[in-house]
């Protein structure tokens, strides 16, 4: 313990400003039947440790592809991705992911779904279950610890998926429109839950959404993407106070931020529309 305490400030000093995620000049190309499609075109951005970044953009703008590539599930065409300073080749346990669909293992109870990650990393069943039980309490599903996923509502399933992604204590948590399939009420509750959860875990979060409100409510910084090919149009810093809840939506600062974002999206939408009209 002492050793760890003595060494940790030193390591912080040696790399005082190393970003948690560095994406540089990243392009992702897909082979399709009409030849090659550029999904993401020379995108660069950094995410600071502990920062909450939202990537917002229309569907088909490559934001999910971008996230999958950071996760190591897809291979970049060119460019680099560094997470915690090392290059991403394949999925790694210090990067957690929550998908749009919960993708829970249907044959495992809530507890065993969450314990799966720690088990795979070599923890004993007792240890893994203890981790799972802590997380179950954190996402408020104590009564459902032994339930199977098909008996849970969509929102509850997604809470399990979040708990499961956190069980390996990832340094980076990637979230791909996790609330996109939920109804508006559940979605607002889930956003507040996530904001609360975020204050307790220390992970860096990259959250993809097509909902500009969701992006502003959650993020420290919003990256607005354009479609076809995916590029980052604008970065908007969200300087709203924390702890935060979805109630920030009624504040004047929020509205002016939203106006900034909408202006960018609108201009881009018009440009894309005129382009398609001309061609």
């Amino acid at each position: 313990m002492k050793l760890a305490l003595a060494s940790s400030p030193a390591s912080v000093e040696s790399a005082p400003k190393q970003p948690a995620i560095q994406v540089s000049n990243l392009s992702i190309v897909f082979d399709s039947n009409r030849g090659q499609t550029i999904a993401v075109d020379r995108v660069s951005f950094d995410v600071a440790p502990g920062e909450f970044v939202c990537i917002a953009g229309p569907s088909g703008c490559g934001k999910s592809t971008l996230l999958n590539t950071i996760a190591g599930l897809e291979v970049p065409f060119e460019g680099d991705i560094l997470v915690e300073g090392s290059r991403v080749y394949s999925p790694r346990p210090d990067v957690g992911m929550v998908f749009q669909q919960p993708h829970l293992f249907p044959w495992k109870s809530v507890r065993r779904n969450i314990a799966h990650g720690p088990r795979m990393l070599g923890k004993s069943r007792t240890e893994a279950n203890a981790i799972a039980d802590d997380l179950i309490a954190m996402v408020g599903l104590k009564r459902f610890a032994d339930a199977y996923p098909n008996t849970l509502s969509g929102g509850m399933q997604q809470r399990v998926a979040i708990a499961r992604a956190l069980a390996n204590q990832p340094r980076v948590l990637l979230m791909d429109e996790p609330f996109g399939a939920l109804d508006a009420q559940t979605r607002a509750v889930m956003q507040d839950n996530l904001l609360e959860l975020r204050d307790r875990i220390k992970a860096t979060i990259v959250f993809v959404t097509h909902d500009i409100d969701e992006a502003i409510v959650l993020a420290d910084r919003v990256l607005i993407m354009s479609a076809g090919p995916g590029r980052i149009l604008r970065e908007v810093a969200v300087k709203l106070p924390r702890p935060r809840s979805s109630y920030v939506m009624v504040e004047p600062t929020y509205l002016s931020l939203k106006k900034d974002c909408l202006d960018v999206i609108r201009a881009e939408g018009l440009r894309a529309f005129n382009q398609s009209d001309a061609s």
């Binding site: 599930l73 394949s90 992911m97 993708h103 293992f105």
Partner: peptide
């Protein structure tokens, strides 16, 4: 479901254990 396999990969499931898990 490919989604289950991706989720399992993200949770550190080794590829050689994917069959049984």
């Amino acid at each position: 479901d490919r989604g289950l396999i991706r989720a399992a990969l993200m949770l550190g499931t080794p590829r050689r254990q994917m069959l049984q898990e």
